[in-house]
């Protein structure tokens, strides 16, 4: 009862405000897409609003609570360890990370945090390559691997066939998997770009375009959020027969 009330209040709050009153209890556990500042960090521009929209969509579509106001956190700040999720986005090579940033990210990942690396300019791929290069300094023992279509990320809430963002991008995801968890997820689809808002509408057009592509981008964002909140819950055996039947229905 209370949770419904607080979530409804949250939906009515403008994105620019903290939902402090309603979500105070439990706020610390709500999904919060923080934007990571690391290396050369040119401003993200309109994509900054994509994080807030991510939370908004999550709250609207699911039972998960989320904090609607985006926050930024630097890799060399101890507050990076305050929450287990952070997005590192950019459109150019981030350059080398400082030792303090490497240490900060190492501690974040060793505690079990999840980092999404979102390339805002997949056409050049400079950010993605640079991020991978720098993350190999953070986790030298772990290389990214391709996540197959059966990975839990594709079924944490929506049944997703392939990842898409503002751009269609490659049909698969890659990630650094530690233990059983995908801890660093590499996107080459400009997900924040697909979610970014400007006034009452979306800030950036999707490529090749269409409402359906944006909807699928939102679904991917929801799935990533659910993965952060529930880890591999949908891999539990109890879900298997349902998901198999639904996939079969989707692909006659």
């Amino acid at each position: 009862m209370v949770s419904r009330f607080t979530r409804r209040v949250a939906l009515t709050v403008p994105l620019s405000l903290w939902s402090t009153g309603a979500f105070a209890f439990g706020d610390g556990g709500a999904f919060h897409p923080r934007l990571l500042r690391a290396g050369n960090h040119p401003p993200l521009g309109v994509r900054t609003s994509g994080a807030g929209r991510w939370s908004w969509e999550l709250v609207r579509r699911t039972s998960a609570p989320a904090r609607l106001v985006p926050a930024e956190v630097a890799a060399d700040q101890s507050s990076l360890q305050a929450e287990p999720f952070v997005i590192w986005a950019g459109d150019a090579d981030p350059g080398p990370l400082s030792s303090a940033e490497v240490r900060g990210l190492t501690r974040f990942l060793r505690l079990g945090g999840v980092l999404v690396v979102d390339d805002s300019n997949p056409a050049s791929g400079a950010f993605g390559r640079g991020a991978r290069r720098e993350l190999s300094r953070v986790l030298p023992e772990s290389a990214p691997v391709r996540l197959d279509s059966g990975h839990v990320l594709f079924k944490t809430f929506y049944i997703v066939d392939r990842p898409v963002g503002r751009v269609l991008g490659p049909p698969e995801l890659s990630a650094i998997v530690r233990g059983k968890n995908a801890q660093v997820i590499f996107l080459q689809h400009d997900l924040l770009g697909a979610l970014a808002r400007s006034g009452e509408g979306f800030a950036l057009e999707t490529e090749p375009g269409g409402l359906e592509q944006r909807e699928h981008a939102v679904r991917l964002a929801v799935n990533i959020a659910m993965y952060v909140l529930c880890s591999d819950y949908k891999d539990d055996q109890v879900h298997a027969p349902f998901l198999m039947r639904r996939r079969a229905r989707q692909k006659p």
């Binding site: 609207r60 579509r61 699911t62 039972s63 809430f157 929506y158 049944i159 939102v218 819950y233 639904r246």
Partner: peptide
């Protein structure tokens, strides 16, 4: 484990259960 991921008030933007991984 059973987690409530969606309530009746949530708008999933789909009417097809087959697009959702929910039970």
């Amino acid at each position: 484990a059973f987690f409530i991921l969606r309530t009746d008030e949530d708008n999933t933007e789909t009417s097809e259960d087959s697009e959702l991984a929910l039970i």
